[in-house]
Design a protein around this nucleic acid. Structure first.
Lengths: 234, 234
DNA sequence: CGTGGAGTTGACTTAAATCAAACGCAGTGG
DNA sequence: CCACTGCGTTTGATTTAAGTCAACTCCACG
């Protein structure tokens, strides 16, 4: 994964330390929960392969997807400091995760401040994504929301080398996931997706998403393009 | 501020270091911007006194308030790692902030991993709040949203000693702020606030918010109460 | 006094939710 | 081999929560 160009280089020494720190690697089946809501686990994860998402639910079952987790992304950090229930994480596809014992997180910082710095970096990056999602659910309308999600996931998939030469990539979300991520109803999400398709902006075929008119999508979503930047990888 | 009981104790040595690291203290007038959207500043802040809020805007002016900043809260960390524009921060009241030169953040981690660890802690805490806000704007209806905001701000004000014995506290938000935080229109926010008031759940008088029926508000918002926990303070 | 920001209210519109019913298709088991 | 099932998608009809437009009040302030 380090070879994809999306991540900062590490020294052999650092890599070795990270390997040590990692307690083990887990394989998760599609649709299985990696972190259960309400249950505080003292573990932290990095996604190795596959897709997952973080979510919260209200007591009557309404669900909000907080963000999607792609290879290289970290999650579970908050649990370390949480005073109680926080969020759940579910695998969208078969996935492999690295597990870190986060009860030793402080030891990590002491022994390898550099790695600690990088954890913070990743956390800050995720916070930026949450900010953007909040702007989306709070102030964008349905068309804009869907356009935003498509282009955002495209960019993220691209940075970790998941996008093919024809600008398409495996898209494991159901429309239910899309609606839960955007705060829309399933039906309305379908209609909106349909409308974007009819406008020729995208196409989903055989489980792959093709962006047919990225420029129009970007304009529609008022999406601010960020230059690709290397980030740390644990 | 350290005396309020909301924050973790620090050793004299640590405090001294934090003082050193701080470049200076700034006073901000109500309504003034502390961080301008689009402008990347290499600085980090801790709010000393007063209220502020983080926000993002779309190019046509629609604004989303991401979260409110209360004394002891840190902000600006993301800028350090940002590849471009992120968010703005505006003072709601007169405010005092500590400024840290965040281009030396890595030095900080190296010299004082403990402080680095605490920065991460604060970042994770803020991420939890953003998660909750996302659930609110994505899945709660107007009544639930407003109830959520009132009780959430109450709890946060309480933890830093801003709440008087009569369960009231100085409430510097206009209805415009409330609506921008919740993703509602101004008019609808007003009606909803009015309805909650008529139900006897709250009262805003002389710029102070009184929660008249916190239990009902909590039930309405499906608010999960967290035990008060001490957090670091920079 | 006049001006402008914040709050309030009524009338009306609309985007999105809800309800309900099909459809296509993959998997399964008789 | 094929009916049965269930999940994901699609579509139409209808309702509703929230947005929009517009006007008016109530201060605080110069």
């Amino acid at each position: 994964m380090r070879l994809s160009g999306a991540f900062l280089p590490v020294t052999a020494h650092e890599r070795e330390f990270i390997q040590d720190f990692r307690s083990n690697t887990l394989r998760i089946g599609a649709g299985k929960q990696i972190v259960r809501e309400q249950v505080v686990t003292r573990r932290m994860f990095t996604l190795f392969s596959g897709w997952a998402f973080r979510f919260k639910t209200l007591s009557d079952g309404r669900r909000q997807i907080l963000n999607f987790v792609l290879p290289g992304d970290m999650f579970g950090l908050q649990q370390q400091f949480a005073d109680g229930a926080t969020y759940g994480v579910e695998a969208l596809t078969g996935a492999a995760v690295c597990v870190f014992p986060s009860n030793h997180l402080w030891d990590l910082y002491r022994a390898h401040p550099k790695v600690g710095y990088e954890v913070t970096w990743l956390a800050a990056r995720e916070e930026n994504m949450l900010d953007e999602n909040l702007l989306t659910t709070g102030r964008r309308n349905a068309m804009e929301r869907v356009a935003m999600l498509l282009i955002h996931l495209f960019k993220r998939a691209q940075r970790v080398g998941l996008v093919a030469e024809d600008n398409s990539f495996a898209f494991p979300l159901t429309q239910q996931h899309v609606s839960d991520a955007l705060g829309l109803s399933l039906v309305h999400t379908n209609r909106t997706l349909r409308k974007l398709h009819q406008l020729g902006l995208h196409e989903i075929k055989d489980g792959r998403l093709h962006l047919l008119n990225p420029k129009a999508l970007r304009r529609l979503a008022d999406y601010a393009d960020h230059p690709l930047q290397q980030v740390p990888l644990l």
